[in-house]
């Protein structure tokens, strides 16, 4: 497959180089909100949404910065844009869909400190994607994040019922399970061809 095609970019961000399991971005929400499937999918939806918005913003900002020849401000601009994008998205959802707003709850503001979002903005700049490719990349990354989070939540719901030694309980067990999950995702490596 052509590495610049939209389909490849999507699959690559979603499965082959999954943001959570093979690039270690967004581990905090991955460990924090993966206790229940329901919250995990909601968090995933919120992340997809914010990723799309901030990816578009980052594309515009980058073009502007290059034009003004002040690339060293990139990091500060990106983080400011992401923080305001999250705020904007929050107000927008609150205004037009209060039900969705209540469903997302605290997760929406927490996304600001999700390194997957800033990582996405930095990577798409580094790879010099055009606008459509950026969107495909953002969508793939968001969907990949949601998949990883949901699978983990499903596993953890089952693990709650398991009888494990005291010392393993909590983060240690989650991380070891995540390691095995990550091992499974390595199987996608050949998918790009």
């Amino acid at each position: 497959m052509d590495p610049d095609s939209l389909g490849y970019i999507f699959i690559n961000a979603c499965l082959i180089n999954n943001f959570v399991l093979s690039m270690f971005l967004g581990i905090c929400p991955f460990l924090g909100v993966s206790a229940k499937i329901e919250t995990a999918t909601r968090m995933g939806l919120a992340v997809i949404f914010v990723m799309l918005v901030s990816s578009m913003c980052a594309y515009g900002i980058n073009a502007l910065l290059i034009k003004l020849n002040v690339e060293f401000l990139r990091l500060i601009c990106y983080i400011a844009v992401i923080a305001s994008a999250v705020q904007l998205v929050e107000m927008f959802i609150k205004r037009f869909s209060p039900a969705l707003f209540r469903a997302l709850g605290i997760f929406l503001p927490l996304i600001t400190t999700n390194c997957a979002i800033l990582g996405l903005a930095l990577f798409q700049t580094q790879k010099q994607y055009n606008f459509l490719q950026c969107l495909a990349y953002a969508l793939g990354a968001g969907v990949g994040f949601t998949i990883a989070l949901t699978i983990m939540a499903g596993l953890r719901e089952q693990l709650d019922l398991a009888d494990v030694p005291d010392a393993v309980k909590g983060a240690a067990l989650t991380l070891i399970v995540a390691g095995i999950l990550s091992l499974a995702f390595m199987g996608f490596a050949g998918l790009g061809g």
């Binding site: 909590g170 983060a171 067990l173 991380l175 070891i176 095995i180």
Partner: peptide, 18 residues
């Protein structure tokens, strides 16, 4: 590779908990 990171950190947490 990535899985090693998860498993090693999990193992250290396990050790410190213990």
């Amino acid at each position: 590779l990535p899985p090693g990171g998860f498993i090693t950190l999990g193992a250290w947490l396990l050790f410190f908990n213990w």
